[in-house]
Each structure stands twice: as structure tokens, then as C-alpha cells.
């Protein structure tokens, strides 16, 4: 699984907002180009980012295996044609190039995930999006992070209890209904207790924001982000 890991790399030290900007710039230019030369350039950028952030390539590819299946099947489906000559290499190649840029986008975002703790991402959200929407989004993301293991464990309990009562022998519709109903009622119970706890602690629209500051190191990175974004229009 791809998660944050503490480290000493340059990318770890950057402000999360510059890292987000680079990702957005990279994705924009990758979505705009599929020419082999452009993809070569993007591959070099990806390789540099992965090396700087010390992202293990194989483990990251494994983490994105579900997307990789579609990206691998796509060119095959595009190449297959009904009737002679049965294989259209040109269409297959076009889809293969288009799939490859998606892989690059995923790898660049993996560098962010690996080097940025959730609290910094939260701070970036709350400082970038103004007003109440930003507050709710930032706190909401922090709550998802906090409760994910709890809700996962709730779901495990429900599935184990169901399996112990031969629930796995039931029809798929019944299984989906059981997991949905029990999962939801447990989760809403938790939410109601959480809302009481939030109010007891004076949950407010204007809490002190988590600390975050651009350093001198961020300037070139922001420059690269803008440059990447501009190449999307080339």
C-alpha cells in the first residue's frame, strides 16, 4: 500500500502546496500531449521526481495494479478489430501511448503521497481554499484519516460475524444489503457521537490554522509547476 513515509529527502522538505502545484502542472501537460517526444520528456521529469523523492518503483506500480490492468487491457482492446485484418496496430499504439501518460501521472502523484503527511495536506487545503468550504474540507479530510481504521475494523467485525453465521452462502444481493445496512448504522452511530463531541469542544468556523510556510526552496519548484502548466498549451 502506498502511504506517507517519514524521510529526509528534498521533496519531504517542500511545502505541500508547491508539490500539489507540480502535480497539477504535470497532469495538465500530460493530458494535453501524447506525441512520443513529449512522452519522453515527461518520462524524464517523472524519473527525476521519483529519484528525488526516493519512491520505490515496483512497490508503487503494485499499489496501482488495478489501474494498470485497465491501462494494459486498453491497447489490446483498441488494437483488436472485428473482421480482417483483425489487428489494427495503429489504434493499439495510439491507446498505448495514451495509457503510458496516465501511468506517468500516477507515478508523479505517488511521490506526493509518499512524502507528505496528512496533517500537511490538511493545512494546505485549509490555507488554499478560503472560508467555510476550506475549513469543512480540511477538517473532513482529517476526520476521514482518523476514522478510516475504525470504520475498516467495524466492517471486518460485520463480515466476520456474517461469515460465522454462513452469511457467505447467501445471495450477493443479501450480502450487499447486510453490509450496507449494518455498516451504515454503525457509522451513523459513530457520527452522532462525534458530532456531540465536536460541539462539546466548541467546533468553530475559525480555529487557529495549522502552521505552514513557503521556504526559499519552494520558489524553483513553483517555477517548474508553472512551466509544466504552460507546456500544456504548446
Amino acid at each position: 500500500m502506498l502511504t506517507y513515509e517519514p524521510g529526509e529527502t528534498v521533496v519531504h522538505d517542500l511545502d505541500p502546496r508547491s508539490k500539489l502545484a507540480v502535480q497539477i502542472g504535470f497532469a495538465a501537460t500530460a493530458l494535453a500531449h501524447t506525441a512520443p517526444r513529449a512522452l519522453l520528456g515527461l518520462s524524464v521529469v517523472t524519473a527525476v521526481v521519483l529519484a528525488l523523492a526516493r519512491v520505490p518503483l515496483l512497490r508503487t506500480l503494485y499499489a496501482y495494479r488495478f489501474a494498470l490492468v485497465i491501462l494494459a487491457v486498453g491497447p489490446l482492446v483498441a488494437a483488436a478489430t472485428l473482421g480482417p485484418p483483425w489487428i489494427d496496430l495503429e489504434a493499439g499504439l495510439a491507446t498505448a501511448l495514451a495509457s503510458y501518460r496516465v501511468l506517468l501521472i500516477l507515478l508523479v502523484s505517488a511521490a506526493y503521497v509518499r512524502t507528505t503527511p496528512v496533517r500537511e495536506s490538511r493545512a494546505a487545503i485549509q490555507r488554499t481554499i478560503p472560508g467555510k468550504p476550506g475549513q469543512l474540507l480540511g477538517i473532513g479530510v482529517a476526520l476521514v484519516f482518523r476514522f478510516l481504521p475504525v470504520v475498516q475494523s467495524d466492517l471486518r467485525t460485520i463480515r466476520d460475524a456474517s461469515a460465522a453465521r454462513l452469511g457467505t452462502e447467501r445471495s450477493a444481493r443479501e450480502r450487499a444489503t447486510t453490509i450496507g445496512l449494518l455498516g451504515l448504522s454503525r457509522t451513523f452511530d459513530r457520527a452522532d457521537r462525534l458530532s456531540l463531541a465536536l460541539r462539546a469542544r466548541c467546533f468553530s468556523w475559525n480555529p487557529t490554522l495549522p502552521a505552514l510556510a513557503f521556504s526559499r526552496r519552494d520558489a524553483p519548484v513553483l517555477g517548474i509547476a508553472v512551466a509544466l502548466l504552460l507546456t500544456a498549451f504548446l
Partner: peptide, 29 residues
């Protein structure tokens, strides 16, 4: 749902296959 997407975008393992990252939000799915 927007909270779910935002949580996935910053890298929590919430998308299919327990993946996360901004790239998934412009990827094939």
C-alpha cells in the same frame, strides 16, 4: 463524496485497490 475524493487526492488509500493520490483523479477511472 467530495470529502471522499479530497481524502483520496491527498493520498489516503480510499480508491479501488486501496490506492490514493491526485493522479487517480485524472487517471483511467
Amino acid at each position: 463524496i467530495l470529502l471522499y475524493l479530497a481524502a483520496g487526492a491527498i493520498g489516503l488509500p480510499v480508491f479501488a485497490g486501496m490506492a490514493g493520490g491526485l493522479g487517480v483523479l485524472v487517471g483511467d477511472s
